[in-house]
Design a binder for these strands. Sequence first.
DNA 1: CTCTTTCTTTAGTGAGTGCTACAGAAAGAA
DNA 2: TTCTTTCTGTAGCACTCACTAAAGAAAGAG
Lengths: 219, 219
Amino acid sequence: MWGMATKQRGRPRSFDRETALEQAMKAFWEHGYEAVSISDLTRAMDIKAPSLYAAFGDKRTLFEEAIEAYVRNYGLFTAKALAEAPTARSAADRLLHEAAVAHTLPGLPRGCMIISAATNCTEQSAEVVEALQERRNKGVAFIEGRIAADVAAGVLPADTDAHTLAVYTGAVLQGMSQQARDGADRATLEAVADVAMQAWPRERAGEAGPGGVTSGRGA
Amino acid sequence: MWGMATKQRGRPRSFDRETALEQAMKAFWEHGYEAVSISDLTRAMDIKAPSLYAAFGDKRTLFEEAIEAYVRNYGLFTAKALAEAPTARSAADRLLHEAAVAHTLPGLPRGCMIISAATNCTEQSAEVVEALQERRNKGVAFIEGRIAADVAAGVLPADTDAHTLAVYTGAVLQGMSQQARDGADRATLEAVADVAMQAWPRERAGEAGPGGVTSGRGA
DNA sequence: CTCTTTCTTTAGTGAGTGCTACAGAAAGAA
DNA sequence: TTCTTTCTGTAGCACTCACTAAAGAAAGAG
């Protein structure tokens, strides 16, 4: 039947697909979608163009897969922080602090790939720009939902503007990515995260789940 | 002598240099340095390539002049806020609020050109990237200097970390630019500026010059 | 071995890049 | 007018872009 593990026929691929994808991802992460040429990619991945096209399709498809690899290998902290933290405030706190680390990892490009890999593009890659823009906006919308829920539950003050606070948090995250690219180090960005959280309204004690109320990272 | 107004010889230029530069600036502002081709520019400026090169030199020189035109026409609020506001806090407040307006002007590209016009570049335009990076970092350093001065003068608390607070303010500014590009409207960004200023330490009353202490824009 | 399948390599495709040589056009100076 | 100067348009430079046809190479199946 079809589920059987039939031996693969034909000449086997001479490179590791995952390793090659990782190299492509780093190139896109550092320079952005359009600024990385196919010849840059074949050099970084150490394969020839036809192998690249056979294994990954065209440049846009490779970029999309690189984005998924980035999220999977370096961006999961975002989803985890938003999913695991008991309150919106603790989620934002954890998000910003982990971003300070993630945006300054040694041996890797600075900043966040989702934020900076498709900002300067021609009209013909508008789809790529919009795909990342949608990812960013969905992130902000998700934070906004968590804030609104905490406001409704009485954890955050009733006069909290969920939309503004979510956009603010997204802006700080994106600004930290830019600052990381401009040379800010991890310690500075962690301190920036501390400062940024000062603008967040305090939680009402007792309403939050255990462990989530204002982290112990004081200034 | 040389100061004499001698009539210009030869065929006069058939287009307005300043208008053409403005169009080039908008193209660079919207799409970034490398994503705008010479043929894009000649279309936007409504001139042919040889006229472009005769009037502006090469693409890089034109971009540098476009940056200066941007600063002159749309970015002066930054320098003015930093120069005219009596205290660091009021300068930051004014900076962020005016940025909310400047980054969402109707009929113009969104966001800040200095922040977003050279983020995705190949190695061969590294100089362009570094030039804008230096501009951004000088801005942050200038804010840091004003903060440090206010700390020394007792206007801001003695335990204020000038470097962190300056990088934070720069990050918010850059994040607001990114959010503007992602679709945030002026009202939201102004509210974000209000929230961001909540993270700033309060000034000691009486130490600041007149009119500068915490603007009247309450939430 | 041969046959089939799949990968790798060479060597290109047409289109677009930044940029320019050259000839013609339009002005003032003589 | 004629000369000089400067700009404009055509046409094309060498190069790179994303992408691929075609042939050879390396595996399993028979």
